[in-house]
């Protein structure tokens, strides 16, 4: 199921990062890796994911989902921005995430766990296929609510 890693360089050794100096030492390694990727500098061309991180979302495990999204999108080499947002009023369906693929309307998915998050990445983000759990909404964006 999982795609071949396009990044062939060896992974950064995490166990060695214990101080700010270690961060400085590893900087050039990170920059080399970043330059190998064709990352857009235009945020509107990136996949945008917003994880609802209010009391209801946090209590339902939104942090685990967000952690998974940040790590997995990076591993699968998908240029995306993962941020947090507030409660959308779908507390019953938490954790909820809003996914915006460039050029498409945002979609809100409910009852997201790491398994569902994986499906959303593989099916919706990669291929545009819809996945179960979409919350039908008639809104422009979360901020507008």
């Amino acid at each position: 199921m999982k795609p071949e890693e396009t990044d062939k360089t060896k992974p950064i050794e995490m166990a060695t990062i214990k101080s700010l100096d270690d961060l400085r030492k590893i900087k050039s390694e990170v920059q080399t890796k970043l330059s190998l990727r064709e990352r857009s500098n235009h945020p509107e061309q990136l996949v945008q994911i917003r994880v609802a991180m209010a009391t209801c979302g946090i209590a339902s495990g939104a942090k685990t989902v967000m952690d998974y999204m940040v790590n997995e999108l990076d591993k699968r080499n998908i240029a995306a921005v993962v941020t947090q947002t507030g409660c959308m009023g779908y507390c019953y369906a938490e954790p909820t995430i809003e996914v915006t693929i460039p050029g498409k309307d945002p979609l809100v998915f409910g009852y997201v766990d790491t398994k569902k998050a994986d499906q959303i990445i593989e099916k919706y983000i990669k291929n545009g296929e819809l996945v179960e759990g979409i919350i039908p909404v008639n809104y422009e964006s979360i901020e507008g609510k």
């Binding site: 950064i12 995490m14 100096d21 961060l23 590893i26 900087k27 990170v30 920059q31 990076d74 921005v81």
Partner: peptide
């Protein structure tokens, strides 16, 4: 310490986690 690399760069995320965890 990160210089021109942004703190929200996804690749930096596990590094900061390791930094904080070990400390």
């Amino acid at each position: 310490a990160l210089g021109e690399i942004g703190i929200s760069e996804p690749m930096v995320y596990p590094m900061l986690k390791e930094l904080l965890k070990s400390n």
